[in-house]
Every structure is written in structure tokens, then in C-alpha cells.
């Protein structure tokens, strides 16, 4: 066996709020690390069952949406190479109203189980949606609470963090991951979330044309000292 074979499996834990957060925001990065053999566990706090997009033309209603979006997320995970999927079974739009200590404790348990090298979640104030901020806050507290050595990063939208100074951050605060080789997987994941993406015509254009909508990079904010110590183009 060579040195590569003996290297321990790297592990990534992503804790998000809704099915599609993983694909729409950082699908390229997840596909890239999965293709390198990283063992990825995705936690979705909700099933996104309060979403407004019901397919186009609509084929879902409020009562059928949870099961449909769970199935879509499973398919997206297969497209991206995510091996483990866990739901926290919180109702969509109510994450911020669940007991914060209990939520944090559940995530601490997951951190102990998974023992991740990298943890991805939302920033607790810049997450953009109340569910995002709430799950980000709980995950950040959980990682601190465990004293685990995993590197914490906050996912960011699009290429906003290409110029972090506009948001009061420096380039040193940001990890920029090149995902250009993984855009096909990202597109497949977008399409897996069919009821959410049917409304966006570009997603269903021929592959090469659709992929021009994706940026070459995805950006992450460093969230703890372990992340700060790592390279600027790699989460690990």
C-alpha cells in the first residue's frame, strides 16, 4: 500500500436548513470533495415543506411537499456524491422557534458521531433566512461546545465574497474553492430539485449553456481558528 491508501478518510459535516441549500449554494464544492473521497454527511434541519414553488406547472400541494422534497434531496445527494443524509425533522420556517439548547445538543451528538475535519453551516447573522441563521447559530455553538478540532466555515451566496471588503471582511477571511471541474454534478443536483428549479428556465437549457450560469468558484468564510490556519483555496 502506498501512502495515499493509508491516509485516513477525510470527513465533512454540512448542517443546513432546507433541501437545496447544499446544491444551490455550495454544490460544486461538495461534488469536488466527494470526488476526492471525502466522506460527506449532510444534515437538513427541515424538509423544505413550506416552500412556495410547487413545480411549474404545479404538481405539489402543502401536504405532499415534504415527501417530494426529501426524495429530491436524496437524488441531489446521489448527484453530488454525498453518502449520508440526516433530517432533524423540524418544520420549515420554525427552526428559530425550536429550543436552541436542545438543537445545539443534537448537533453536538452528530459532531461526536461523525468526527468531521470540516464543518459547513450558515453564518448566524449573514445567513439570509431565519432558518439559515438559526441552524448556523446552533451549529457554531455545538462545535465550540464540543471543543472539536474541526475547521468551521460559513457558506456564502454566489460570488459576493469575491470582494469581501464590501462586507467588512478581508481576503484572508475567505476560502475560495475552484469548482469548475464539478459543474456537471452541480447542474444535475439543481435538476434533482425539480419542484424548485422548474421555474428557472436556464436550468433546463442544454448542459453547456446552463453551466455558464455557474461561477467557477464557491466562497466560504472562515469561522474558527482551525479554518484560519488552512490554505486559501482548500477547506481541508
Amino acid at each position: 500500500m502506498n501512502k495515499f491508501d493509508q491516509a485516513p478518510v477525510r470527513k465533512l459535516l454540512a448542517v443546513f436548513a432546507h433541501p437545496d441549500d447544499e446544491s444551490f449554494i455550495c454544490g460544486g464544492t461538495l461534488a469536488k470533495y466527494a470526488s476526492e473521497g471525502v466522506d460527506i454527511t449532510l444534515v437538513s434541519a427541515t424538509r423544505g415543506e413550506m416552500g412556495r414553488r410547487m413545480g411549474n406547472p404545479p404538481y405539489l400541494n402543502r401536504e405532499t411537499m415534504a415527501a417530494a422534497r426529501e426524495m429530491e434531496l436524496r437524488q441531489a445527494c446521489a448527484s453530488l456524491g454525498i453518502r449520508h443524509l440526516i433530517f432533524l425533522n423540524i418544520r420549515d420556517k420554525t427552526v428559530e422557534f425550536t429550543d436552541a439548547d436542545r438543537l445545539t445538543a443534537r448537533i453536538e451528538d452528530l459532531i461526536h458521531q461523525v468526527d468531521p475535519d470540516v464543518v459547513l453551516t450558515f453564518h448566524e447573522t449573514l445567513g439570509g433566512h431565519p432558518d439559515h441563521c438559526a441552524i448556523g447559530k446552533a451549529t457554531t455553538a455545538a462545535l465550540r461546545g464540543t471543543g472539536h478540532r474541526g475547521a468551521l466555515y460559513f457558506i456564502t451566496f454566489g460570488d459576493a465574497m469575491e470582494r469581501p471588503e464590501r462586507f467588512g471582511f478581508t481576503r484572508g477571511d475567505i476560502t475560495k474553492v475552484d469548482v469548475h471541474a464539478h459543474l456537471e454534478a452541480k447542474l444535475a443536483a439543481f435538476r434533482a430539485h425539480r419542484c424548485q428549479t422548474e421555474i428557472d428556465e436556464w436550468v433546463w437549457l442544454p448542459d453547456q449553456e446552463a453551466m455558464t450560469r455557474f461561477g467557477r468558484h464557491e466562497y466560504f468564510m472562515k469561522g474558527n481558528r482551525e479554518a484560519a490556519a488552512r490554505l486559501r483555496h482548500d477547506l481541508f
Binding site: 414553488r53 413545480g55 401536504e63 422548474e198 421555474i199
Partner: peptide, 13 residues
Amino acid sequence: RLLLAGYDDRGRM
């Protein structure tokens, strides 16, 4: 169960 819904012309409820 009786489910009533109102959708717009692009499938949003």
C-alpha cells in the same frame, strides 16, 4: 382531506 390552493401562472403557491 380537502385541499384548496391558489397558484400563480408559474406554479408558485
